[in-house]
Structure formats: C-alpha cells, structure tokens
Design a protein around this nucleic acid. Structure first.
Lengths: 210, 210
DNA sequence: GCTATCGGACAGTAAAAGTATCCATAAATA
DNA sequence: TATTTATGGATACTTTTACTGTCCGATAGC
C-alpha cells in the first residue's frame, strides 16, 4: 500500500506519518523507484504501537524512538528492559538523593536482587523524599505495602513474558508490559480506591459494611 | 519574607514564581501597600507542593491548578479524590471503548464497589484494548494479578488516610497518595522487575535459583 | 497526453512552560 | 535626605514539542 492508504487505514494524517518517518519512528517503505514506496501491514502495526507509546504510555517522540529501536535491535532482553525503564522517566542523580529515603527503599525491598544503580530504586527514593518534603510522615508501612504490590505485578509480568516465545515477541512484551503495565495499574488503582473508600467511608444506609 | 527571599529559599527563579502567581497556583502574598507583599512559610510549602505535582506527579500547570484548588476548597473527600483522579489522565469517552475490554475489567474487578463511570474503570479498559491492539493476547491472568496489586495499594492508601486527622490533612494525603503513589509504584515496579528477572533468567552460576 | 497522486523538503503553527525587560513605586543605606 | 537598590505587575520574548501545510519535480493510471 502507499502513503494515502496507510493514512486512511491507520487513521493518522499523512503529514503526521511523514513526520514519524522523518523522526525515525517508522521505518521507510520499500522503494521500487526513487520516489515510489510501498508500505506493508507491518507499518500499520508499527503505527499502532507508536500511538500506544505516545498516548497511553505518555512517552515523548524521542523516548518512543529509543524504545522502538530497542525492540528492533537484537540486544539481550535484560538490556531491553533497561531501555524501557529509562524511557519512562529519567533516572535521578544518586548524589542529589536523600540518603534516608534510599535507606527506606533498601529496607522495604530487602532481599530483592538488584544493582544499586537500578533506576527504580533511585526513582523510588526520589518519590519518598518528595512525600516527606510536603509533610507526609510515618509512611513506612504505606511504602512497604506498595513494595508488595509492585512485586505482585512484576511476577505477573515475568509469568507473561515466559509464556511468549522468540526474542522479538518477548522484547515487545517487555516494553508493553513495562509501559502499558504502569498505565493499567494506575487505572485499576483508581478503581480500587473508589471501592475501598466506599467500603470504609460510606454513609449510605443501604450499604453493608464488610 | 519578600519575593527575592522566597525565590532564594525555594530555589525557584523569581520569574517563575511570578508565573505561578499569575496562573493561580500560588496564592498572593499579603499586601501592606499596593506594591509590597509579604510571603510566609505557607507559600514556601506550597511551592514545594507545586514542584512535586509538576515534576514527580507529571501534571500540567492546568491540572496542578485544579488539584490545588481541590485541596483548598472544602469539598468532601470523595470529591477531592475524583479531582485527583481526573487530573492524572483524562477519562476516555465510554462510547469509544471496546466492550470486550470493559468486560475484562469488570471481570477482574468483580465484587468491587464502584460506579460504572469510574475513571479508573474506563482507563483500564482503554489500556487493555491497547494491549490487544498491539497483539498481546491471553492476558487475562496477567491483568487479574494487576488488579490484586492495585487493591493492595488502595488498601494501604486508605489505611494511611485514616491515620490522619482533619479534612485538610486528609485531602492532601488523598492528592499526594494518588499522584505520588503512582510514581512510587512505578519505581518499585521497575525494581521488582529486575529482582524477578534475575531470579528466573539468571545465567550466573553463583546464583541459586528459587 | 493529461490529470491525479507520490514522496521529500522545508516552512509554519499551536500549546505549554517558562524567562526577560520595563517601569513606577518603596525600601535601604550612605 | 539623597541616592541606590529592590519590589510587584504588565507585557513581550523564548524554547521545546508535536505536529500541519505548502510546494515541487517525478510518476501512475486512464
């Protein structure tokens, strides 16, 4: 298919597709002549993925590009994981982190196998420091529960990953699981908050407390 | 204190503070004369909160404004919750959602008490639909685990909320818990992924598998 | 042969988040 | 008290990001 059809089928304006092409998000079509290219269903699929990364994952064009290149390359899965992680949010500079916050992170993740420079570890410390800076205290138990929740999700991720075969399918699952997984969690988290709130705070007389 | 000191103590450029003032994020100082205002530690605290919402929470100026106004107002907590939820990400239009995705959400949240228009429910359906659209399938178990993780976090949130007294402290905890909570989860999630990956995929011969 | 379409280059636009400059007062200080 | 410095407000400018539009010479298809 050619540009116009690619645009029509994906629902993305041709000018925008050309832009993604320029930015290196979408690989070029195959040229029969210097100015006539044909695009395949692979391109269509790629466009869907691009929109997912940008809209649901909230990535910038530059971050999406890094992530897509990580999928395309043949780097080992562990590295793909790292690219995905770094695309989500920049890793804070360890030297600017509050050591007390880092200590809490290390405490609630006791027994976890990870490198000290793990981006998640550092970002968690930054989040905790921010909690404190706006006056939330005595939050140790709260954070520990979050660590448990995170472990739950991570185990599900890896179960899912092991259900796939082939490096490419796995790499894609890594990216999608990391990026859309956070979005899904956030959404379910909000739903769960409403549920728990209604259980504990309801004044509705028709409502039976648990 | 005056502008210059507020800037120095907060580490935020004066021009930027004036901008926040204009945008209604930061309340005006108290005026002794038409062009001499004094600012208090409350303003300093507020600036910290603004930066937390913008940088760690990833909110836009407009969203941060809505959230801060929700804290300032005396609206009931349930409504404050809703403002916080809507600030994080816009609620998808239900009519554009894939009914099958909604059905999955309703299945994995079976027994949860929530309104059909809950923003989390709709956003979760959108995330799931996106998963599918890029070819991830057989993901029911994966999603169900995420629902469990979300419930864990939500329970911790409410425990923490109930530990606070006074509507203002609770409102702030609601906002902070919802926004920074997602950031904290995402960070811990990444840390947990490294842990679980190293457990299951390691080729390190010194490493004992579980 | 003629018109419609193609891909590429490049310029333009819109929104978001600041940043800089002016200026008429006030404050501080010499 | 005279003079320098600082203040708050208005307004204009800048930068980044993510597109969008216009033009053009080269095909495609009738």
């Amino acid at each position: 298919m050619k540009m116009a059809e690619l645009g029509r089928r994906s629902g993305i304006p041709v000018a925008t597709i050309k832009f993604y092409l320029r930015e290196g998000l979408l690989p070029a079509g195959e040229y029969r002549l210097p100015n006539q290219a044909t695009y395949t269903d692979e391109h269509l699929r790629r466009l869907t993925m691009i929109r997912a990364l940008l809209e649901v994952g909230g990535l910038s064009i530059a971050a999406a590009k890094r992530v897509l290149h990580a999928i395309d390359s043949d780097m080992p899965l562990a590295e793909t994981f790292e690219v995905a992680q770094q695309a989500i949010s920049e890793t804070p500079d360890p030297s600017t982190l509050n050591p007390a916050a880092l200590a809490i992170v290390d405490d609630i993740t006791r027994g976890w196998h990870m490198f000290p420079e793990n981006p998640g570890r550092l970002a968690a410390a930054r989040a905790i420091d921010t909690f404190w800076s706006i006056g939330q205290e005595d939050t140790h138990g709260w954070f520990a529960q979050y660590a448990k929740a995170a472990m739950f999700a991570a185990e599900a991720d890896i179960d899912e990953l092991q259900a796939r075969t082939g490096r490419d399918a796995q790499a894609e699952t890594v990216i999608v699981g990391t990026l859309l997984g956070d979005a899904l969690f956030a959404a379910l988290h909000r739903a769960a908050q409403e549920h728990v709130t209604s259980l504990r705070f309801t004044t509705d007389h028709n409502h039976h407390e648990v």
